[in-house]
Design a protein around this nucleic acid. Structure first.
Lengths: 231, 231
DNA sequence: TCTCCAGTTTGCGACAATGCAAAGATCCGG
DNA sequence: CCGGATCTTTGCATTGTCGCAAACTGGAGA
């Protein structure tokens, strides 16, 4: 049996506003498990048997095109839900989820979704508004891809990663998980070569500090200038 | 008072599975109105006082970038919901909605959302799964913008428009509302010049038939070839 | 410690798509 | 039925980004 306490969940956005009893009930229905770095949490097209909460780590949500190109749809950070197919009326996962580092997750069986929603309307509301934020965020991404140049998109990607997953170090804000030039290119719709050129140029200017699967944001305002440059 | 009959709604996806009484109740809470071509149904950032059902016509959902560029986020067809900010936990509209032709709509006050959801769980479920489909669709759009070339994206855009809003004519499948080269470019993240070049090239091959604010798909399979071309 | 491999950098040529400019076509209102 | 506004087409020069190739580098495992 999992030795997990409701206090683990209490501060997470999906459970905000829920009573201690409600959290206990949610926990009682869940099982926890680990996922090693690079392991799949679920795969696109697979029947959505469960939905998940990421208790620790980072997960990449990835789509693969017919000719094998990968696109990173989003990163899931600690405390977020993933794989909630039932909440959006689907019975298979629409993308792949891969652990970006060793992760700890909680899983609920999808067929418990209706009962959980009925028992915990607050959780349902939180979930639906999270889906809404993701929709709005994804739409913003469409606007970005449609109107901005590669340079701006890469700057934006790094700024968001730093904002959402950044850890303060004495050099600057370090992105908290291993991330390659290739990963950045798959987030921004470009090639690892172009990303590498941009990052090494910014590195030489001292705006960021790069490394193997590592990026530290040193002068965020510089990248913000790049991201919003008129031309 | 609006003289609307519940049978108007019965066949529309948002209301599927609902009883006649439920539909009557929904209708009783709504008011209908018209929106002239090019008029705004709502604007980005505006407080979301209402949510809407499009009873007749087509609506363009548009975002505007800081430097004035427009991006068409989606087209809403007859029978679809729009402006459902409350369903996604927002209290302002995240984009502009503009009538693409003269439209007829139904409006419900947003503050009735909770009561409606409580009274009609089927409607709630339908709405949430529609939000989910839109999320999945928007994610697919991100993948497309990130990986495909302009030519393929334009071909795809025309194919989807024809599929979703096409009207059969003796020449082929006509897109049912006025749509300019500029509109297509705002859907696909390119320029009206490039769209014009592509369309006139396809026109000269007999694959489509263009006109002022008019596109007829003649040989859909040709565009499908273009859309999925390996290179 | 050495070796190998995955990840990164960089140069260079190629080209898809843009930006600019100007002419043509079509429709609507007066 | 005319005139102007809007939409479309097309040529040409420019360029941002890619594709390919090759060298480099840091770190994990033997």
């Amino acid at each position: 049996m999992s030795r997990l306490d409701a206090s683990l969940l209490a501060d997470l956005p999906p459970f905000s506003g829920m009573s201690r009893d409600a959290l206990d009930d949610m926990l009682a229905r869940a099982v926890s498990f680990r996922s090693a770095k690079d392991a799949y949490v679920f795969r696109e097209g697979e029947e959505a048997h469960s939905f998940f909460l990421l208790l620790d780590g980072y997960v990449r949500v990835v789509k693969v095109t017919p000719d094998g190109e990968q696109v990173i749809v989003r990163y899931i950070a600690t405390g977020e839900l993933l794989g909630i197919a039932k909440a959006i009326g689907r019975d298979s996962y629409p993308a792949n989820a891969v652990a970006a580092v060793d992760c700890v997750l909680l899983a609920w069986p999808s067929n418990a979704w209706d009962a959980i929603v009925a028992a915990h309307p607050g959780f349902a509301t939180n979930t639906y508004s999270m889906v809404g934020s993701r929709l709005v965020g994804t739409q913003d991404r469409v606007v970005e891809l449609a109107t901005e140049r590669v340079e701006q998109r890469v700057a934006n990607a790094i700024l968001s990663l730093a904002r959402e997953t950044g850890r303060k170090t004495d050099e600057g804000i370090l992105i908290d998980f291993p991330i390659s030039r290739q990963d950045i290119s798959e987030m921004t719709g470009t090639t690892l070569h172009t990303v590498s050129r941009l990052l090494s140029s910014w590195d030489s200017k001292g705006w960021i500090k790069g490394g193997r699967q590592k990026i530290t944001l040193v002068e965020g305002h510089r990248l913000m200038m790049v991201a919003s440059a008129r031309d």
